[in-house]
């Protein structure tokens, strides 16, 4: 267990009721009914029609005689039918739009997530407000794509590790971070194609989003996001390159809470478990160079922080 934290101030909020595991989706109609919801919109990506995710949700609503409006998410605009009284968002694609739609309309938001997440869907990063309900049900996960599960796991591992190390980390956030890393350890014990591993990665991503909403994004996550915006790479690929640099620095300065999850060696082990399955192109040098140039151009604190990481790594080398 970790050393005990010094007297400090913090605030924590996680907002959503979570339904996680086998038959979680079966609770959806009752939860909506209790809230007085009778005509939810089911917001989904165009390619999700007929998938197990869509079918699971619509079947379970129909099973309980609940009316719903399927709404296809498109980049330009999403419009809701009159009398819609809640939004159910399926998967990660329409997550941002669903957050904004629910925020603007004041409607309750339920999110049904899978093992494909970028670890922002379940948080409050889009509007400052958490979804009302989160559902993770393995029966609704689409066809197994181990590369995507591995990328979710890498993104979650980065955020969870950073959240343990943040200045804003505290006893409550660390419980969520440790639970998330525990799930990734569980995922690493199984083949990534298995439902167990996929579900564990999905749960870790959900916990990463909740923690990140409270502790903020760390240096690596921020830089990865910046690199991703440039279109050259995506966050999990950049994380896989940059996280080891952070771990090296943490080893030098002593991780406050990292000890409770087995230290930086355990994080590296997990990274090694997931990265080979993630199908990343081999371009470590390019990513490092791009990260350095992005950091040098950045006037934000994470730019300076990432340069320090390079310095530490350089000194070690």
């Amino acid at each position: 267990m970790s050393s005990v934290q010094q007297l400090s101030s913090f605030s924590f909020h996680a907002g959503s009721q979570m339904f996680i595991g086998a038959q979680a989706l079966d609770h959806l109609p009752y939860v909506l009914h209790q809230r007085g919801i009778s005509r939810p919109a089911v917001l989904h990506a165009p390619d999700r029609e007929g998938t197990s995710l869509m079918k699971s949700v619509t079947d379970v609503l129909a099973d309980c005689g609940m009316l719903f409006f399927p709404v296809v998410f498109r980049q330009d605009a999403v419009s809701l039918e009159e009398h819609t009284d809640a939004v159910i968002a399926l998967g990660n694609v329409p997550a941002r739009a669903a957050h904004q739609l629910a925020f603007q309309s004041g409607l309750p938001l339920a999110m049904v997530l899978t093992d494909l997440q970028n670890c922002t869907e379940a948080g409050n990063m889009h509007t400052g407000v958490f979804p009302d309900y989160l559902f993770l049900d393995p029966s609704a996960y689409p066809r197994a794509v181990p590369e995507l599960t591995a990328r979710t796991a890498v993104a979650a591992l980065t955020m969870l590790t950073e959240s343990l190390q943040q200045d804003r980390a505290h006893d409550i956030s660390c419980c969520f971070s440790e639970a998330g890393i525990g799930q990734l350890q569980e995922a690493a014990r199984q083949p990534l194609r298995s439902l167990q591993a996929r579900h564990a990665a999905a749960e870790a991503a959900l916990e990463a989003a909740l923690v990140r909403s409270n502790t903020g994004a760390g240096t690596v996550s921020s830089v990865c996001q910046a690199l991703s915006s440039s279109g050259f790479t995506f966050p999990s690929e950049a994380s896989a390159v940059l996280l080891p640099l952070l771990l090296a620095q943490m080893d030098q300065h002593g991780g406050r809470f990292l000890f409770s999850v087995g230290g930086s060696r355990e994080i590296l082990r997990l990274l090694d478990e997931f990265v080979p399955s993630a199908g990343f192109p081999r371009r470590t040098d390019q990513i490092l160079a791009l990260a350095r140039s992005t950091a040098e151009l950045s006037h934000q604190h994470h730019g300076r922080d990432i340069l320090r990481l390079f310095d530490t790594a350089g000194a070690e080398a």
């Binding site: 913090f10 605030s11 979680a24 799930q183 579900h199 909740l210």
Partner: peptide, 21 residues
């Protein structure tokens, strides 16, 4: 078992500190 169902209701906003009041 990793896929066993559970529901979790987190606490509301929690503010902690020697000057939290």
């Amino acid at each position: 078992k990793s896929r066993q169902f559970f529901r979790f209701t987190p606490p509301g906003r929690t503010v902690v500190g020697p000057r939290a009041l």
